[in-house]
Design a protein around this nucleic acid. Sequence first.
DNA 1: CATAATTCATTGACCTGTCAACCAATAAGG
DNA 2: CCTTATTGGTTGACAGGTCAATGAATTATG
Lengths: 142, 142
Amino acid sequence: MPEQYPEEEQIFELLQSLSKAISPKFERLVNISPTRLRLLHELYDGDEISQSFLQKEVDIDGAAVTRHLKGLEECGMITRRNNPEDNRVTLVSLTEAGRGRIASLCEEKKNFISNLFSSITPEERTALIDMLTRMQQNIKQL
Amino acid sequence: MPEQYPEEEQIFELLQSLSKAISPKFERLVNISPTRLRLLHELYDGDEISQSFLQKEVDIDGAAVTRHLKGLEECGMITRRNNPEDNRVTLVSLTEAGRGRIASLCEEKKNFISNLFSSITPEERTALIDMLTRMQQNIKQL
DNA sequence: CATAATTCATTGACCTGTCAACCAATAAGG
DNA sequence: CCTTATTGGTTGACAGGTCAATGAATTATG
């Protein structure tokens, strides 16, 4: 049985180093952190959204959401107000300025991702989605 | 032209959420953080190693290395001493206790990784390495 | 209806990474 | 030599995530 693990470990390392490399590049080229853009993107389609909904969508801790939104509010990208029908929830929405900026940010993101996958063929992409999904399930079961 | 980006974006999201999911599971099951185990693993084969070498191998910031090693020292896993031939460098090595614990940690890691890739066939693994490597190159060129 | 349980958001403490500034020690060059 | 890089390590400040505790508002229940 010729060396079974090294290949696995190699993928493991690759995965880690790849995703470590992605964030800073993304932030430098798109001019916003991936997480913040995801938050904004959620706001883009819909109208007002509650923080708890945002949190579920973006899947980070509520504390992080609170802080990001505070920052985005200070930047004038979003506004927040209490839901009059339920004073626990705060509703978040894009400002006009925010809405204006998002289109170009998303464009940059598309370019970024295009470049990232530029050398991956369509068949490979399908296979990749498949594998990553299976790995995600494997992880979940641990 | 039917929707070119969604698939790319899906992979992008998958990658992020997968690697986000991996670390905490790893830490819970292997009982040490991936980074720390990588540091210890470097120490395992060789004898004494300088921090700067460790840093290059593990590829994280020197400040993080300093703090991890401080922690590992307090745990009694490693010792550090100045290199008498060059007083700038500090040489790191495993303690006996540390060396004793590593074998089982590495075993846990192997198990963890095995499970992670359990549903990925050998051919797929090869293809995956290939794709991830290309993506890494793409990133580098941005 | 009054009390108990749940939900939402916030805060504080911690972890692990980044970068920038710094000090000490060594190496290189005039 | 003496001065000027350069290198190795530490520290402080920041970013962005975690968890745990808290307070306020709402919902469920005896």
